[in-house]
Structures are given as C-alpha cells and as structure tokens.
Amino acid sequence: MLDLSSFNHLQLDAIREVGNIGTGNAATALSELLSCMIEMDVPKADLVSVYSLSEYYGDPDALVAAVFVRSLGEFGCSLIFLQNEEDAALMVDLLLQAQFGGSPPGELQQDMLDSALTEVGNIILSSFLNAINMLIGTRHQISVPGVARDMLASILDVVAAIFGQMGDMALVVNTELRVGGAEENKRRITGNIIMLPDPSALELLLRKLQVL
C-alpha cells in the first residue's frame, strides 16, 4: 500500500498538476454558470495526512459550509468543496444574481440557499472530477451531493473518518477565485477542494501518469 512518506518529488508534482487541471476546469464551469469572468491563482495542492487536516485549515471553531460528493468507477474518490460561511454566502449571492438578474425574489429560505450552494458545489466538484477522468481516460459516476454547515473541525472529522476507512492521506487543493469584471469591483471568493482518492485510485492515477 502507498504511504505518504514514500512519495517522491515526481509523484507529488504529478498529483499537484492533477489538482491544477481539475481546478482550472472547475473555474471554467463556474465562470459559465455565473456568466462572468473568473480569474484564479495557480492552486496550491498538497498531500496531507488526514490526522492533521484540521491544523491545515486553521480555526477549528470557524463556521464553514461543505458540499460532498462521492465518485464511483475506476477512479473512486470522495470530494469535498469547503468554504467559510461568508464566502459561501457570496457565492450563492452571485449565482442568484446571475439567475434573477440582480433582483433575487425576496427573502429566500435557508433550504433554498442550501440548495443553491449544493448546486454550485456540485458543478465545481463534477468539473474537477471530469477533468481528471478525461486526463487519465477513465469513466465515472458521481453521487447526488450532500451539504453541511458546521464547525470546521467537525466537518474535517467526518472527512477523516470517511477516509480513515481506506487510507491516511488526502489531496487538498486550495485556490482563490476573483469573480467579476472591473478591477475595483472584483470580489474575492476562496474555496477549497479536498479530494480523497481511494488507495487503489491513487495507484491508478500515478500509473496512468507514468510516475509509478
């Protein structure tokens, strides 16, 4: 079985590049969804032990929103899109503006907002995953998304427990998106994608990239 400490530089770089490609595709999809320009930084991608995930993201008590999907197929993995509450609210705002042309229909209920957020998360994660599957030539099916709003530590606790059943490491990709047109109106939205490949999927990925 693969273990975090045994990864060489070439393999880590290959995995980072996969994170970049996936995020690029996700940003494109988001840009189409919101019908506006989106700029993104080169994402930071890292392999992190699931036990230290919460230290990696900071304040354990911070309120975050998370969207979760599970991918089945040759490249089996779990994906989580994680944002702090303000960024998530901003993202939903932008989506509703795009849909309703700047005048959202009055006060929306929490479950409607959750639903909008779930859809954004779903589109981001699906396009992230599509890019990877296209890159390595695999087919996949994606589950219906789930959403949770809670303390950062408890979300990551679930992530670790899900993944802990299969392995000890996660691929995390962080990026900041700048949404909007003119420089002064640009809104910054930060989002984190956490990909938890099944151990067999991680092996497959490295083999297809010819670094194993």
Binding site: L72, P145, G146, A161, Q165
Partner: peptide, 21 residues
Amino acid sequence: GAQMFALADASTDFLSVGSRN
C-alpha cells in the same frame, strides 16, 4: 456520532459511520 452529510444514495453506506461508532 453525528451523520452530517445526508446523501440519498444507497452506495454511500460508509457515511453512516457515526451510528456504527
């Protein structure tokens, strides 16, 4: 032992890890 993500999908049995714990 909470179940924080609810997915309407039978293949996500591993999400019920909370109640099994």
